[in-house]
Design a protein around this nucleic acid. Structure first.
Lengths: 359, 359
DNA sequence: CAGCAGAGTGAAACCACTGTCAAGATCGGC
DNA sequence: GCCGATCTTGACAGTGGTTTCACTCTGCTG
């Protein structure tokens, strides 16, 4: 292994040291080591000598200096609104992995759903000249201001989990409508007709399209949507709270004595809460009631029963956001215009153990 | 709000622009805006004028230039060995939050448990002159090499989740022995005497001390440890796999027909697998068998039944690692010697629904 | 009234690298 | 032996800060 960071008595070795060692000027060294255009004129012997000297000294270019000159940081800012939301994990993995392949490094910030924190972090990231921004807008009321702040930043920006129509900020979202449609369809195909629904909070962007998908299936198949079996999650800034809300709402649904054989939850967390409530009431899943979630967070397949849910291709979505902004960076570099792109990816129904045929 | 990034026709405003605007030299501007020692000689009027000019132009210092001079990046490298491990999430949150308070920014890297990736990332981080390193060694066979690489880096480094005796790398771990002790003690106090154990893989550092804690309790209370009820997780680099292994091993334990009334799993993932296997065999938790895990990952409290487990104070551990390395950075800055510290934090038993009295 | 301390400020060096530009060397062709 | 083209290389300027050092100017002491 190369003698990493080999320093001469604590000092870093600079390009000048390599120049001295190799007998050429630092200009030539720079040209050779960066394989700059001019390098094609430099004879192989010279290159060899310089490379040997560089290796011998363990030379590593100082990225501060390089960045100062080139105005590039090779860094991308990632803003998450709440990292503890299990929804984030796989997306972050997708982001990380794709950035790695493109040789960018992520600076991760967690906004804790606080506006002040958002502003401070945004400032910090821009001060560091991140070349792009990826915003993971999970479980969030994105106000107009946030978007405006982001637009002002004038670097390629992609938002995951929030549909946008801007032409400055790209977006990657799942097709909520299609997912919800598929989920009810699944329940319907299993014979369920009395289905309870826990809808998302109205302030959450995902809520409406998911409900639309359900309504659209209901209409197409003449499924009756009983308004007394439809409840809404309260607004909250905390994704974990949807577990508790799911629990409480399901308790109330049960107490109502209005029978249902299946329950469709807004997301997996809510579904977990619902399952808990059903269990408390002596109702087994899926024997007495089928339950379906949305998202397919990591825990869903580990749950007992394993949760049937609508899978968001999270890793792919993260990767997609990265490739969008990397394209953006390249456009900026080549002084082409950056155009926002909006991707809506298809979810996939993951049928597991929490749903079954109505006997 | 300040006119962020206000640029004069696309160019950033530099300290010289502020100098020109205010009528002072860039030296004075620098002194004033940084409140450098010399600033005490500068009269308030001058300061006011300079500050006003800076604000008016929306001046933001170029951190590349600053870093180049000061040799500081205000950045900390965070290396995770597998981000998808739910064990990481809260620790990362703790790290992020504490770094934020100290005005450092994290660069997050996920090593995917691959040595080549580790090396490349380490190199990238050092090239960027991160001022410290926090390594989240979850579920990992840390070979000697990795440690050696880290030691060579000669920046303050803390490792979470792996006990070390080095005097160059700090460590933060949970007291595995104490945690395991508390867990068996809990089962014992509920009346359980026939307890099955799924131990961790031998190559994992946590395995031995946890088992030691169990043995030590067994000895103290004359609990009989039936070797036929003791099984080991296979070695694996994937934390999710412990779910499957937990499932399989529990299946085998059941098949053995050697009765047990409680099961202590190596970690929560394993416990989830065990619960699934028990359920498949028609055994309810906790009615027919109590189950206890270790870690208290986010999903544990959401599980049905909610999992009794040994809680690692993960957020605190992350925070602790940060304060250790920040102290280290300060020491380096003041040319004091950096001494590694080793913290072992006490876990806490979280008693929930998966364990109950033996009737 | 020389001398000196200290307040207030700026010129210039420096951090490490890249890119432009031009000069010198080499070569082929006439 | 001269000319233009093609190599090969290095001096130098520039990137945007910070810091050293020195200079000027008061005001005060001896």
């Amino acid at each position: 292994m190369s003698v990493r960071g080999s320093k001469v008595n604590g000092l870093m070795v600079t390009i000048r040291d390599v120049a001295k060692e190799s007998g050429f000027s630092s200009t030539t060294v720079s040209i050779v080591l960066n394989n700059a255009p001019l390098a094609r004129y430099i004879p192989a012997v010279t290159k060899k000598r310089i490379e040997k000297a560089a290796k011998k000294l363990g030379y590593r270019p100082n990225l501060f200096a390089r960045s100062l000159r080139s105005k590039r940081s090779h860094t991308v800012g990632v803003m998450v609104f709440d990292m503890t939301d299990p929804y984030c994990t796989l997306i972050l993995r997708g982001i990380e992995n794709t950035l790695y392949q493109a040789s960018y490094l992520p600076i991760l910030t967690d906004v804790h759903n606080e506006r002040s924190r958002f502003e401070r972090y945004l400032e910090m990231l821009l001060d560091r000249r991140v070349e792009a921004l990826i915003v993971l807008a999970n479980w969030l009321f994105v106000d107009i201001d946030v978007l405006a702040d982001l637009e002002k930043s004038s670097i390629p920006t992609a938002m995951i989990g929030r549909e946008l129509k801007t032409d400055t900020i790209s977006s990657v979202i799942v097709d909520n409508e299609m997912g919800a449609y598929a989920a009810v369809e699944h329940l319907h195909s299993l014979g369920h007709r009395k289905i309870a629904f826990i809808r998302g909070p109205k302030t959450l962007a995902d809520s409406a399209p998911r409900w639309k998908g359900i309504r659209s299936f209901a209409k197409a198949s003449e499924l009756d949507l009983d308004p007394r079996l439809i409840v809404d999650l309260p607004e909250s800034r905390d994704p974990i709270s949807s577990f508790e809300a799911g629990y409480k709402l399901t308790e109330e649904l049960i107490k109502q004595k209005r029978p249902f054989t299946a329950l469709m939850a807004f997301d997996d967390m809510t579904a977990f809460g619902a399952i808990r409530a059903l269990a408390k009431a002596g109702l087994r899943v899926p024997e007495h009631c089928s339950v379906v979630g949305f998202d397919d967070v990591a825990a869903s397949s580990l749950y007992t029963p394993a949760l049937t849910t609508v899978r968001q291709p999270m890793e792919a979505m993260g990767a997609m956001a990265v490739s969008i902004v990397v394209d953006g960076i390249n456009s900026v570099q080549e002084k082409r215009e950056v155009v926002a792109v909006h991707r809506k990816v298809a979810p996939e129904l993951a049928v597991r153990e929490s749903t079954r045929n109505l006997l």
